[in-house]
């Protein structure tokens, strides 16, 4: 292997892996049980898992059809549409949170109408956490599923049409099963992104223990008060992320990925 490639590659591995090793090394292992049992930890973890999962489901429900439109339909201005929906991918999440607040807040363009009609205000609720996470994470799913759709052989859809399947039936019975590994990969990416969401969540949903304080928020606040506890919470997030990745790799991603 050429040295100009090998050395930077090794540096990159070290750069990516060392911080995680540091986290594991510095963890207060003897007290870890007691730290985890503290009030609020379980609550934050549960809230994180539930909201990330709901955000992923919402992203699947809306994002897979959007990916189909981007990959398969003939609508004009598709590239503009694609650029627009991927903006949250590059946008600083805090800006996303501010934008959500301006639209969905009690005084927002849509939020005011919602509040007047129902008396419900979205910000600072658990639902707001899910909305913020979906806003930030859905583009990951859309991009990944669109890629899978483009890679899938569209002639299978022609074959389905000659067998009497309309486009909706074709989508359900042919296209979706063909791109299932891509959808699974996108869902994992989306879930992991939602789980780690910080900026948009704290801006749009606030930081209320029990309703909107997710694990990343808890880690950040605890770090200022009690660094040891923050390390433990970080370890928990690391463990959950790794476990998910390994589980899904074995179950879905490994099996005949793309075709």
């Amino acid at each position: 292997m050429p040295v100009p490639l090998l050395v930077p590659a090794l540096l990159a591995v070290g750069f990516l892996v060392l911080p995680l090793v540091g986290l594991v090394v510095r963890a207060p292992w003897p007290e870890i049980g007691a730290q985890l049992a503290r009030p609020g930890v379980g609550e934050a973890l549960r809230l994180s898992l539930v909201s990330a999962t709901l955000a992923t489901l919402l992203s699947l429900l809306l994002g897979v059809p959007l990916a189909w439109v981007l990959a398969r339909s003939q609508v004009r201005g598709r590239s503009l549409l694609r650029a627009l929906v991927t903006v949250p991918l590059v946008l600083p999440p805090v800006v996303g949170g501010v934008a959500l607040f301006l639209v969905l807040g009690r005084q927002g363009i849509v939020g005011r109408w919602l509040f007047e009609a129902t008396g419900f205000s979205l910000p600072f609720t658990t639902a707001a956490v899910v909305v913020a996470e979906t806003f930030v994470a859905m583009p990951f799913l859309v991009i990944s599923v669109e890629g899978a759709l483009r890679a899938a052989d569209a002639r299978f859809e022609d074959a389905a049409a000659t067998l009497g399947a309309d486009r909706w039936t074709t989508f359900r019975r042919v296209t979706l099963p063909l791109v299932a590994p891509g959808v699974a990969a996108g869902a994992v990416l989306c879930w992991a992104r939602a789980l780690g969401e910080f900026g948009a969540t704290i801006t749009f949903a606030g930081n209320f223990p029990g309703t909107t304080q997710t694990m990343p928020l808890a880690v950040y606040l605890t770090l200022q008060r009690d660094p040891e506890a923050a390390i433990v919470l970080s370890l928990v997030l690391l463990a959950v992320s790794l476990a998910t990745l390994l589980l899904l790799r074995g179950r879905w991603l490994g099996r005949g990925a793309v075709g």
Binding site: D153, R155, F156, D158, A159, A160, P177, L178, A180, G259
Partner: peptide, 10 residues
């Protein structure tokens, strides 16, 4: 079709 295009998941 030339390369049969049987649906691989069925």
């Amino acid at each position: 079709f030339q390369d049969h295009l049987l649906f691989p998941h069925l």
